[in-house]
Design a protein around this nucleic acid. Structure first.
Length: 273
DNA sequence: CACGAGACCTGTTCGC
DNA sequence: TGCGAACAGGTCTCGT
């Protein structure tokens, strides 16, 4: 579920507090409960349980789709993958189906990592540099420019859709925002990267920035049974709209499969070749 | 280097 | 109504 805008939205909620729940910074961990061992990528469960009590949350952050819970010593990194979600509630609240990891704070509040499909992972690290090594540029960084994008595209001979999903190229795009960005740019998802002109690269850069910012402004997208209050799903131009009218030209949105991912585009606004 | 298939998981929706 | 297939916001690994 979560792409950059969703993870960033969750990080902001955790940092600032929401719906009566307190901000996480300042919270002191009292104890942990690991309900599904494979959710913990590192370290071993015993070391994890022994290390966290008494540590204090000092801040929240995000790198790519990784959520960073900074501690007075080290940090807890969480990747929500397809179905993960985080919530803050009193530690007296009943454990829910698919809850995988609980952090109980001395204040009586609790952070819960819920993850239906069990793809999500958590790492307790002294230093996250190694985990983040190899990730591509952040789309909201000053280094991400039309010129950089055009030059980077020239070095790859890949279809745009899978390339934009590649986290070592640009970090944070997922299936929704990639389809939306390509539609905004008027570029076919199967176009080859090294055939993109400077003008087209600039449109793609703008499409990526516009789609991600719109997602952030809407507090992310909420679909199906995973709901967090975001509303970007109401603004989808092509994602999940196969057969419906393109908002620009009215043609029927097409769905194809690229790299095993559903891919949505307008055949008129995003011509092949 | 690029690509496709399979794995990891559970749940919902679709088609017959 | 029942039941299997297809599909879902992600990423890793392996074989070609």
């Amino acid at each position: 579920m979560p792409e950059l805008p969703e993870v960033e939205t969750i990080a902001r909620y955790l940092r600032d507090g929401r719906d009566g729940a307190p901000p996480l910074p300042g919270q002191v961990i009292r104890t942990t409960h690991l309900l599904w061992p494979r959710t913990l990528a590192e370290p071993e469960p015993a070391a994890f349980a022994a290390a966290l009590p008494e540590r204090t949350v000092t801040g929240l952050g995000r790198r790519a789709k990784f959520l960073r819970i900074l501690l007075d010593q080290g940090e807890l990194v969480i990747h929500l993958r397809m179905s993960g979600d985080l919530r803050v509630e009193p530690d007296s609240a009943p454990v829910q189906t698919h809850d995988r990891l609980l952090l109980d704070f001395a204040s009586g509040w609790r952070l819960v990592f819920n993850d239906t499909r069990k793809f999500g992972r958590a790492w307790l690290l002294d230093d996250s540099a190694a985990l983040f090594a190899g990730l591509g540029l952040e789309p909201f960084s000053k280094e991400f420019t039309p010129d950089w994008l055009h030059a980077a595209l020239q070095t790859r001979r890949r279809q745009l859709k899978p390339l934009l999903l590649d986290q070592t190229f640009i970090a944070g795009l997922g299936n929704i925002y990639t389809d939306e960005a390509l539609h905004l740019a008027g570029l076919h998802p199967l176009r080859l990267a090294d055939q993109v002109t400077p003008a087209q690269a600039e449109r793609l850069w703008q499409g990526i920035c516009t789609a991600l910012q719109a997602g952030l402004d809407a507090h992310g997208a909420s679909i199906d049974w995973v709901y967090r209050g975001g509303s970007f799903q109401n603004e989808f131009r092509v994602y999940g709209r196969a057969g419906a009218a393109c908002p620009v030209c009215g043609a029927a949105v097409q769905r194809i499969v690229v790299g095993q991912r559903g891919t949505h585009f307008c055949p008129v606004c995003q011509p092949a070749g």
